[in-house]
Computed example of a mutant assay.
Amino acid sequence: MPPSSENRTLLKDNKLLRIEGGSADFPADTDELSSGYTLFVDDSYFFWLSMELPQAGKKKTDAFVRNYLSTFFPENMLTSYGYVQRDGKAYIYVLAPALVDLIETNPQIFRKAGSVTTPMLELIAKNSDFRYHDGNRVYSISDSLITQQPENPDEMDTPLTFEDGIRIEVTAFNMKLPGVGREKLAIEKYKVPAAVLLIAYVLFATGEYFYAKAAQNDLEAYEKRLNKIYIDTGVATKADPYGSLLFHAKGGGDTSGGIDVLDTLELISDSATKGKVGLESLVIKENSVTCTGKAVDFQSVEGFKTNLETNGGVTASVDDTDKIEDGIKFVVRFDQ
């Protein structure tokens, strides 16, 4: 039997709301709510990933998920996360600091809930392919797997939102939130905002993990710079812009933490003249950056080198050029 509206609530923007008639407009008081209600937690409280899972017991599945997360995040970030399973896939949620604080200060909201889920999770149970906007980030769900994307104004379809998810009456998931059921949630010394977890995920192959300052304007500046790089490097409309960017940046080799990778990518995208210089790969090793690409003529290669030196204050050199049918293939290197 579907739960009644009195037993359905939404936690959003640090407010607990009753869900009535498919909308959540009325404040809810946990003291007045009967235990066992369905709690929808807004997806903006989480950073989402997903993976396909082999058949295994819980112990092995826990290890698969933790190993998967450890390729994206350093160990000290993996203090508050969980996952749910459906149809051979794991949906992994990393809790934002705001939710960690709510669980610590208002545990009764979560302890009295009979089940905990999110609007996007319930939409995944009903639809295998759609886009979802949580108010801050856009997720693309394809074959029931989650990929985060930059918001693209050229997309013709309108993303689904929490309002679509909370209309689903019979829920399919029940999340186990870290800290619920214990007196106090263990918190690491450093709380890293969810937006910076995204930056660390994008740049994990380089070893460059960005530890955020608290100021929101700094976080927004990082996101704007990343979106500009997606557009300038031509990967903004790819199904997996992160993977495409990492492929070009890694260039098949290992990288090190000696360079600020975000600044380096921005310098290269600003210095390559659009329509005249195109980059095919980057290799970052220690303090050296090697760019391989094609240009329309030798002057454009020299212009790219000069722009790098002017914009970044670096010493650049043209290590190789080769005349090809449609222009010049080149290798330009600079140190930072």
Rank of each mutant, 00 (worst) to 15 (best):
V314Y: 11
G181S: 11
F204P: 03
D31M: 01
D29M: 12
L308R: 08
N67T: 06
T292P: 00
E220S: 02
L226S: 10
S44M: 00
I328P: 08
I103A: 00
P178C: 07
E75M: 12
D87E: 14
R66S: 13
G181H: 12
Y45H: 02
Y132K: 08
K89L: 12
E266K: 08
V41I: 15
L69I: 07
E220P: 02
D320V: 00
S244Q: 15
G165T: 10
E188S: 15
S115E: 10
Q85M: 13
A221L: 11
I146R: 01
P178H: 08
M120S: 07
A272R: 05
L10V: 08
Y209C: 05
T117V: 02
T158E: 11
I284C: 03
D101M: 04
T158W: 05
D232I: 08
Y91L: 06
Y222P: 03
S140L: 06
S244T: 14
S50N: 00
Y83R: 13
V301L: 10
Y139D: 02
L121Y: 02
S317F: 04
F130R: 10
S50K: 04
V283G: 06
I109W: 07
I324P: 09
Y209M: 08
V331Y: 07
A125I: 07
G114V: 00
Y45C: 02
R333C: 03
S269Q: 13
G253H: 07
L11D: 10
V84L: 07
V235Q: 08
F173P: 10
H248T: 13
E20W: 11
D232Q: 15
A215L: 00
V332F: 04
M156W: 05
Q148D: 02
A63T: 14
S70R: 13
G135N: 04
D129I: 03
K329T: 06
Q85R: 15
L198F: 09
F304P: 01
S80E: 11
A236P: 08
E52L: 04
S5P: 03
V100S: 07
L197D: 07
V261F: 08
G313D: 12
M1D: 05
Y83A: 12
M175A: 04
R131G: 03
I168T: 08
K15V: 02
Y190M: 12
V314M: 08
E183S: 10
D263N: 14
N174H: 12
Y83Q: 14
I103P: 02
S317R: 13
L95Y: 06
M175T: 05
L49H: 02
K228L: 13
Y37P: 00
S44R: 00
Y37V: 00
Y83F: 15
D143A: 12
I324V: 15
K294A: 11
N217Y: 00
N311S: 06
D42H: 09
F47A: 01
P54A: 06
D297E: 09
K285W: 13
F72W: 14
